[in-house]
């Protein structure tokens, strides 16, 4: 079990750096020759060689995916709320439009459950109309269905930043980051949310640090 877990970790790293077929070939080779326990060390050493050979391919395989647009981070036009719940106490609905932190190439739509996709879409529509409370309600339904999907937490963070709930946005982005282990693209976008929020809070030092984290993941 533990050997397997470590292997998965290394394998994940490899898969970002090396083409999949080589990783798979390595895995097969190791399994057949040394059994489970041999997983950990050998790939590290082999990959040293791999990396030298294929040093150019890493960035290609990481960033050339075409992302499907989801959760539009671009500024949206505000439409006055239809159901405008005037007495809603949670937060003012007339908050600003989604803040214009630099639009990133969005994460590819890797959420598998159609239910979650439907809820993400619904939330996006509400957000576009400035009905953030309702958008958040949709996202919380999505969390109930898929509680450990980092993308869902990420989108909730985006809704909160749009509502100027910066501290909450930071926490949600951090939560998303924790769950998004090894998804550098999503982690980067989360760090950008964090940086943006710290900026709004006037904590420039923390904002810069977050920005640097984002840059490291580029």
């Amino acid at each position: 079990m533990r050997g397997m877990r470590a292997f998965t970790v290394v394998n994940d790293r490899l898969s970002r750096a090396c083409p999949m077929n080589i990783v798979n070939a390595l895995g097969t080779f190791l399994t057949t020759n040394r059994g489970e326990r041999a997983f950990v060390k050998m790939p590290q050493l082999m990959c040293l060689a791999c990396l030298v050979l294929l040093s150019g391919c890493a960035d290609l395989s990481m960033y050339n995916q075409t992302p499907a647009p989801i959760g539009g981070s671009a500024p949206t036009e505000q439409v006055p709320s239809q159901r405008a719940p005037v007495t809603l106490k949670t937060f003012p609905l007339d908050s600003d439009t989604i803040s214009d932190y630099r639009p990133q190439p969005e994460i590819q739509r890797r959420v598998q459950k159609p239910a979650v996709i439907a809820l993400l879409d619904g939330a996006q529509q509400f957000s576009a109309q400035g009905q953030y409370s309702l958008a958040a309600a949709k996202m919380e339904r999505a969390i109930r269905i898929s509680p450990r999907d980092p993308l869902v937490w990420h989108h909730l963070a985006k809704i909160r930043i749009a509502q100027q709930q910066y501290e909450l946005a930071i926490s949600l982005a951090k939560k998303s980051n924790l769950l998004a282990a090894h998804d550098r693209m999503l982690q980067r976008n989360n760090w950008l949310i964090i940086a943006e929020s710290f900026n709004y809070l006037g904590q420039t030092g923390s904002a810069n640090k977050a920005q640097q984290q984002a840059a490291r993941l580029l």
Binding site: R83, P85, T87, L88, K89, T90, S133, L134, A136, A137, E140, I143, L156, E167, L168, S171, L172, K174, K175
Partner: peptide, 13 residues
């Protein structure tokens, strides 16, 4: 059925 209040998910690291 007018929305009054929502008790939203809150997290803090």
């Amino acid at each position: 059925d007018m929305a009054l209040q929502r008790y939203a998910l809150n997290v803090r690291q």
